[in-house]
């Protein structure tokens, strides 16, 4: 706002800061995020330890206005993408994610419209639930390469301007590769089921999460010094086809169940549990793994307004198998990426 350039490289206006907040909060596990802007969407990519990556995709449709002029000279054209989009014209930079989230919920206590600020017992401690009140006009902009990423929020007489310092993305910022055409497993189910399963397993505070599937069951198991727990999801028996894609919603636990052959892979539980925020707001989740064992969790989140859905994506690199051989599975031993990345 302060630097009124004639035409910023990027600007977008959203009627609901809360919508942006809900999506970005899903990847709030990391203090920083990479921002990638193309003509159609705004991507926020957060990662941890090179083995976990979360991407929140804010499509153009979420905004009432969305304008992006890629810079002629600064286009990153190395097709470093994961094969999905060809070298689109885009810009990348890094910002503090925690600062962005705090900005979006600055009006946490919400609209001063009504008696929100009166002395009800909740006002003084409402910081846990400010999310509920977040609304209001939100304007994002990025004037030029190297300029701060600016967020302007407006609500009943208060304007909050936040300028986030932008950083060059770190040189080793690469997406975790996920091979879409070599899928070892694909299961789509209601997010609530997976949420319950993960909450159940989390109670024992385990270190590792074992994901396994065969032609009839999808199993999550975890063990710790306190004991072990297994959650099994059974494929709807009435479907006889292997790669059945059930179209009727709510027909069974699994909407899609595609497991060509037995699958078993181990992941860091503490990392996977980081998707709980996303699970709690998502309606559906697609669990996929490629033949390298890279796990992709894709969350479908219904938009607050105007219908439509948004997606938040997570990827995990599997843990190397144990030496004791109990977990060894000949088909998936090429997890060499995991050995190096595992701390």
């Amino acid at each position: 706002m302060s630097d009124t350039q004639s035409r910023p490289m990027f600007s977008a206006v959203s009627g609901s800061a809360r919508q942006l907040f809900l999506l970005l909060r899903c990847i709030g596990f990391s203090p920083k995020t990479r921002v990638q802007i193309t003509e159609d969407e705004l991507r926020f990519i957060a990662e941890e330890g090179g083995v976990m990556q979360g991407t929140a995709i804010l499509q153009k449709a979420l905004f009432t206005s969305f304008q992006f002029t890629p810079p002629a000279s600064h286009v990153h054209e190395e097709g470093h993408e994961d094969g999905e989009a060809d070298a689109d014209k885009f810009i990348v930079f890094e910002i503090s994610l925690s600062a962005l989230l705090d900005t979006l919920q600055i009006f946490g206590l919400g609209d001063s419209k009504s008696s929100t600020f009166n002395r009800d017992p909740y006002t003084s401690t409402a910081f846990s639930a400010p999310v509920l009140g977040v609304t209001g006009l939100c304007r994002l902009s990025y004037a030029s390469v190297g300029a701060p990423f600016t967020i302007v929020l407006q609500e009943s007489g208060i304007t909050t301007t936040s300028e986030l310092v932008t950083y060059e993305p770190s040189s080793n910022a690469a997406d975790i590769p996920f091979t879409r055409d070599q899928i070892a497993i694909k299961v789509i189910m209601r997010a609530a089921y997976l949420y319950d399963a993960i909450s159940e397993l989390a109670s024992a505070n385990p270190e590792r999460l074992v994901l396994a599937a065969d032609d009839s069951t999808f199993t999550l198991s975890a063990s710790s010094s306190l004991g072990s727990a297994v959650v099994e999801f059974h494929r709807d028996n009435s479907r006889s086809q292997y790669a059945s894609t059930v179209d009727q919603p709510g027909a069974g636990v699994m909407e899609t169940f595609f497991v060509p052959e037995e699958f078993k892979q181990v992941y860091h539980f503490s990392r996977v549990v980081g998707v709980k925020k996303a699970l709690s707001v998502a309606s559906k989740v697609s669990v996929r793994a490629d033949n390298q064992g890279v796990l992709s969790l894709q969350f479908m989140i219904e938009n607050l307004e105007g219908g439509g859905v948004s997606f938040v994506d997570f990827r995990f690199i599997p843990l190397a198998d144990d030496e004791d051989g109990s977990e060894s599975d000949r088909d998936y031993e090429e997890g060499e990426t995991a050995e190096t990345a595992d701390e």
Partner: peptide, 24 residues
């Protein structure tokens, strides 16, 4: 001043932001 509870909620969040960035 605007209602103090409103001012407080915003200034508390500012303070929190500043503290967070410090720990980083």
């Amino acid at each position: 001043l605007p209602p103090l509870m409103q001012l407080k909620s915003i200034s508390d969040r500012f303070t929190k932001v500043a503290l967070e960035s410090r720990s980083v």
